[in-house]
């Protein structure tokens, strides 16, 4: 009796609340789902794709954005871009690294070495603010630092489907979500751009690239959509460089746990046999 009264009260209150819940959602559309080679329990990075993404990063993103946490040597490690040691050395040597002080007490520039990290494109945050009107965020863990709200009940299903590419999907949406003109009725502050997927829509980063901006040697389409996907895959690797090892070891651990749990189950049945049979 009391239960049904309470249930009724609860239901009524939730119903009364429902329309307000709906109005709480804002007008940002959810990013479209992409297909990623690295999703799922056996996901791996597509080497060609992350190499293309690296090219996009070097030629477009690196003008403003740093990659502070990544070293050149990381490019050649297992589960990374698939470069050889010589290629890594070559890439590193294409960068100028500030080092010092030398014996004369002066800072100097030298060729990069595999142990060096990617140099930042600006000296300090204030210099960046002067130059770009904002501090371009570091991209090292960007693919894990952005997400979008999945909402009930999707966030529960995600546990079982292992959908966790919220960050990459958002990044692709953001890179392709620029609109030349803000919709009618929206006035943008000067120096800001309109982006469909950016929370609040007014974004400090101008549209970074368009079709044909980067030349691909492997014949992949040179389109904004392709660039966005490739550079996002590269950023997923920079954010989670040991992802392939993690998923590989995870599978081994799962097999072990299932076998061990199975054995323990039979041991338990044996041990409890006499108790269950009432002999004890």
């Amino acid at each position: 009796m009391m239960r049904s009264i309470l249930a009724a009260v609860l239901a009524a209150s939730l119903l009364g609340v429902a329309p307000q819940l709906a109005s709480a959602a804002d007008d940002t559309p959810p990013p479209p789902r992409q297909k990623w080679s690295f999703s799922g329990p056996f996901g791996k990075f597509d080497r060609a794709q992350v190499q293309r993404g690296f090219k996009v990063y070097r030629e477009v993103c690196a003008v403003c954005h740093g990659l502070d946490l990544v070293s050149f040597r990381n490019l050649g490690q297992p589960g990374a871009l698939g470069y050889s040691e010589a290629q890594v050395k070559q890439i590193a040597s294409e960068y100028k690294i500030k080092d010092g002080p030398n014996d004369q007490g002066e800072m100097f520039e030298r060729e990069g070495r595999p142990a060096d990290r990617f140099p930042r494109p600006w000296a300090n945050e204030n210099a960046a603010r002067v130059q770009y009107n904002a501090v371009p965020p570091d991209l090292s863990v960007m693919a894990k630092a952005r997400t979008y709200e999945r909402g009930f009940p999707w966030f529960i299903f995600d546990i079982f489907t292992q959908y966790q590419e919220n960050g990459p999907d958002y990044l692709v949406a953001l890179l392709t979500g620029y609109e030349d003109k803000a919709p009618a009725g929206v006035t943008l502050p000067p120096t800001l751009s309109y982006n469909k997927y950016f929370p609040g829509h007014a974004i400090a980063m101008p549209k970074p690239m368009e079709d044909g901006r980067v030349t691909y040697e492997d014949g992949s389409p040179q389109t904004l959509a392709q660039y966005s996907k490739d550079v996002t895959a590269f950023l997923m690797w920079t954010a989670e460089p040991h992802m392939e090892a993690r998923k590989r070891i995870g599978f081994q651990v799962m097999i072990f746990l299932l076998v061990f749990a199975g054995l323990l189950y039979f041991v338990k049945q044996k041990v409890w046999y006499d108790v269950k049979a009432g002999r004890i």
Partner: peptide, 15 residues
């Protein structure tokens, strides 16, 4: 039964 116990203990030790 003994085989089961030994196998389980071994797998546990490997773990």
């Amino acid at each position: 039964r003994d085989f089961l116990y030994i196998a389980t203990a071994s797998v546990g030790a490997v773990g």
